[in-house]
Amino acid sequence: MPVPHIRRATPDDEDALGRLDRVTWSTLHSVQPRPQPPYEPFYNERFGPRDHVVAELDGAVVGYVRLARSPLACSAHVRQIQGLAVAEEARGTGLARALLRAAGEEARRQGARRLTLRVLGHNTPARKLYEAEGFAVEGVLPGEFLLDGEYVDDVLMGRAL
Rank of each mutant, 00 (worst) to 15 (best):
M1F: 09
P2Q: 08
P2D: 09
P2H: 08
R7E: 12
R7Y: 04
R7Q: 07
R7D: 04
R7P: 00
R8S: 15
R8C: 14
A9Q: 05
T10N: 00
T10D: 10
T10M: 07
D12C: 15
D13T: 08
E14D: 14
D15C: 13
D15A: 15
L17P: 02
G18T: 09
G18P: 01
R19H: 15
R19S: 15
L20T: 12
L20P: 08
R22M: 13
R22V: 13
R22T: 14
V23P: 14
T24E: 12
T24A: 15
S26N: 03
S26L: 09
S26K: 10
L28W: 10
H29S: 11
H29Q: 06
S30G: 12
S30C: 14
V31Q: 10
V31I: 14
P33A: 00
P33Y: 01
P33M: 02
R34C: 07
P35S: 12
P35N: 12
Q36K: 10
P37C: 13
P37E: 15
P38E: 02
Y39W: 11
Y39I: 13
Y39Q: 00
Y39S: 07
E40R: 14
P41I: 10
F42M: 01
Y43N: 15
Y43F: 15
N44A: 05
E45V: 15
P49L: 04
D51L: 02
H52K: 03
H52R: 07
V53R: 04
V53G: 02
V54H: 07
V54S: 00
V54A: 04
L57E: 04
L57F: 08
L57K: 02
D58T: 05
D58K: 13
D58E: 13
D58Y: 10
G59I: 05
G59E: 03
G59L: 07
A60N: 05
A60T: 08
A60E: 13
G63M: 02
Y64V: 03
Y64K: 06
Y64L: 06
V65W: 01
V65E: 02
V65C: 02
R66H: 05
L67M: 06
L67I: 06
A68F: 03
R69S: 14
R69M: 09
S70M: 08
S70P: 06
L72R: 14
L72K: 11
S75Q: 13
A76K: 00
H77P: 00
V78I: 11
V78Q: 04
V78H: 03
V78D: 01
Q80K: 13
I81C: 01
G83V: 11
L84V: 10
A85L: 05
E88C: 09
A90Q: 03
G92K: 11
L95H: 04
A96N: 11
R97I: 03
A98H: 04
L99M: 01
L100I: 09
L100A: 08
R101C: 06
R101V: 05
R101G: 09
